[in-house]
């Protein structure tokens, strides 16, 4: 099984770190992984995206031109990447910030009000984790426990108090997937 994922949004929405967390979790589960960012001026406010591959086989191209899943956090990202999802693939839309629906009917589309949920949890910054929770529920690309194991490593020490918040965000995201 090979997951070829595009994650995209505004700079500052945590798209890059969402990808990195997923790649780290994949690695922990013994998979082959790669994380390829878009880089440059768009990091400072424009649209940022990264390509993550998680696979049981050695990874060829680190680029993702045909995605098994796309996670879009804002409208420009939906406009840009909807067409790149493989037929039968998944498209996760942050419905808090995206006012239009997907146009394709050959893919599975999920609407997640990530920012609203994040605000309910107390900080808009955690919207990326809500989306990640929904993503792993849909694809099983990584286990929630593995992601939390990695989060716990990163936020050990004085930032440890935000670990439960991340766990809650993943759960709330997953709850959006029926």
């Amino acid at each position: 099984m090979t997951h070829q994922i595009i994650m995209a949004g505004f700079g500052g929405q945590g798209v890059m770190s969402m990808g990195k967390i997923l790649a780290e979790a994949g690695l922990k589960e013994g998979k082959n992984v790669s994380w390829l960012p878009s880089y440059g001026p768009e990091m400072r406010g424009g649209t940022a995206n990264c390509s993550v591959i998680i696979s049981d086989e050695p990874i060829g191209a680190p680029t993702v031109t045909e995605a098994t899943t796309a996670i879009v956090m804002n409208r420009p990202s939906l406009d840009k990447f909807e067409k790149d999802v493989l037929p039968g693939g998944h498209l996760l839309i942050n419905s808090s910030l995206i006012d239009r629906k997907a146009t394709r009917d050959d893919i599975n589309v999920y609407y997640i009000p990530a920012n609203e949920i994040a605000d309910e949890l107390g900080t808009g910054k955690i919207a990326n984790m809500v989306m990640l929770g929904a993503f792993i529920k849909v694809t099983n690309a990584a286990k929630e426990d593995t992601i939390m194991e990695y989060i716990a490593e990163v936020f050990s020490g004085k930032n440890a108090d935000i670990i439960p918040l991340n766990k809650e965000a993943l759960k709330r995201g997953a709850d959006c997937i029926k």
Partner: peptide, 10 residues
């Protein structure tokens, strides 16, 4: 190339 510099891999 830029990808070698910017991407992450195990």
């Amino acid at each position: 190339d830029g990808m070698i510099g910017q991407m992450m891999e195990p």
